[in-house]
Design a protein around this nucleic acid. Structure first.
Lengths: 111, 111
DNA sequence: TGAGTAACTCACTTTAAAGTAGGTAGGGGC
DNA sequence: GCCCCTACCTACTTTAAAGTGAGTTACTCA
């Protein structure tokens, strides 16, 4: 996490200290993150596959979100030394356990 | 929802169309919203009570988040014509049903 | 040689959320 | 009269997320 003295950043810390639900929401609320997790689970596990299916996304954003998800332990990355080199993403246990929460959210929002 | 032709807004629509999980996350990812819901549930059901407990928040932000939550059907508002006038907030059924999802999220993030 | 693909990265701009300052209305208390 | 309270609202600035454009490496195919 970046250090900053802006109220904005301090308030974020306050929220994380107050309740870990806020932390959880931060991890998944980045735009595209939920979909990336769902599609990786469905087998769209490579950069170019995700780029195609999330058509309006740019390379930059996709790369950034994948990096975030990896750093937060929701997905893992394997570089397969083929020619051409291949990079596979997959959900970690933590990533997989999100899927049932997504189901609940989907049900909840439809209610 | 505001209409706009920016990619930013169009991408948001794309995400909502793609998967309703994104809609659900939008409803709860506004800063302070999860805590407001939790505190209202715990009986901190008035503007000034919430303001005290969420000490770094400003009147403006609190008002805005409460309005959002009301418009999205997560909380309801009752004006009690006492002197001085009192305004009570409470969770709707939809708001209450979020609490168990918050529990799951809390567990998940701790895992 | 030139174009294309995969998986990125850097530097930049734009957008919308978050935050700040100050105002409002109707009363109360000194 | 004057400042305090509750529960807001308007207009503005700041911040960080989202998005854009172009470049990179390394290899393939025509």
């Amino acid at each position: 996490m970046k250090k900053s003295n802006s109220s904005n950043a301090l308030n974020k810390e306050f929220l994380h200290r107050s309740c870990s639900v806020n932390e959880a929401i931060d991890l998944i609320s980045g735009r595209w993150k939920a979909l990336i997790i769902i599609y990786i689970h469905e087998g769209q596990n490579r950069f170019s596959l995700l780029k195609n299916i999330l058509s309006p996304i740019s390379d930059q954003i996709l790369g950034r979100q994948l990096k975030d998800l990896e750093q937060n332990g929701l997905i893992s990355k394997t570089i397969v030394p083929e020619i051409p080199v291949r990079v596979d993403y997959e959900l970690t246990a933590k990533g997989k356990s999100l899927l049932s929460i997504f189901d609940s959210l989907e049900e909840w929002v439809a209610s």
